[in-house]
Design a protein around this nucleic acid. Structure first.
Lengths: 200, 200
DNA sequence: CCTACCGATCGGTAGG
DNA sequence: CCTACCGATCGGTAGG
């Protein structure tokens, strides 16, 4: 028989939160904001719907956390990949960033797909935290594209905004067609980076 | 005072259907399948919700028609652009196709955005008609990409499926960031086609 | 974390 | 195209 400590309680609470978010992410990915109901989420977790309110203040709060986590997973993976390839050839850094984006996108598929799918929130506008998290990730690519254009690995005469929107749209669009049995992420990353930045 | 003929009746019915679809498309674009309610659609049109069932059998039927029309608008525009540039330089045909896709995408923004947003239908799976309409449009690009790879306007060593998914994802992703006051469609079409098929 | 409950709203139908 | 209505389900709350 064990005596619960403050730390145990915190860990259990964190675990419950994560469990709820995992199921919420899956249901949001499959059905979007309005189809993912609190009843379904609670049932998947194995608790009553009202008990969700012990962990979260509202449905919006659950959705907001899922959506932001989805972006953060990708953001952190790309930042890590860029850190690991610091000083490497520009084309190699581009391929590493694309690879990290795709790997995180499909490695946390429920969160990231939910994040892409749910850009309309319940009633009001998109929460400020969601916009901030997305902007922060875009800034990583803003920086990388500037670096690559300066190094000549991406054509300097292309508009950076168009380039970034084009590439991120193409990568995120893979949630619609990527199937692990049909494509390999490293092959896709190579295809895409060589398409944008051909070896001469 | 006029006497209604059979033709008038048909025209009026068609007009009502279109009016309903126009408002449905706008609401689907903004809220997705479950947030676009029959009550809102009916109110926007200026009729009672039950009267929608005089024109359509179900909500699914309305959504299906909006979604398919969205793809068809783009499909027809691209086919027309390719017909107009028959025999022209490959790179010119690519730019024309991209331009037509973007122009139709944003010229019928409610339908096409709804089409991209609503890929999860109410209860059951995506209707077969929807999958068929989408596949038919993809085939246009399958053909064009094969033609361009053969002509050397797109790198022959790139996988055609990856190329097509990448490009269509990037173009359709523009529904998330395109604003008429920030971008020009002809400039974007040029940026994108030159990115994929640089002039040598 | 639970039982019990709330008003609001959903898509759809009956019958004209 | 209408009025009137249906059962089902929604997010959320009271009170423990």
């Amino acid at each position: 028989m064990s005596i619960a400590t403050a730390k145990d309680t915190r860990d259990t609470e964190r675990g419950s939160r994560r469990l709820i978010l995992d199921h919420a992410a899956r249901l949001l990915r499959n059905g979007g904001y309005h189809r993912a109901t609190l009843r379904e989420i609670a049932e998947a977790v194995g608790i009553r719907k009202a008990s969700l309110y012990y962990h979260f203040a509202s449905k919006e709060e659950i959705v907001e956390e899922v959506v932001n986590d989805g972006v953060r997973f990708v953001h952190e993976a790309v930042v890590a990949a860029l850190a690991e390839t610091e000083g490497a050839a520009p084309r190699e850094r581009l391929e590493a960033a694309i690879h990290a984006h795709l790997a995180a996108l499909h490695g946390h598929g429920d969160y990231t797909s939910a994040s892409i799918k749910v850009f309309t929130f319940g009633a009001g506008p998109v929460p400020e935290s969601v916009r901030a998290v997305r902007r922060a990730y875009e800034d990583v690519w803003r920086g990388l594209i500037a670096e690559l254009q300066q190094a000549g690995a991406l054509p300097a005469e292309r508009a950076p905004d168009a380039l970034r929107n084009f590439l991120l749209g193409a990568l995120n669009g893979s949630t619609d067609w990527y199937r692990p049995e049909r494509f390999r992420i490293d092959a896709l990353a190579r295809e895409f980076s060589e398409l944008l930045s051909p070896a001469r």
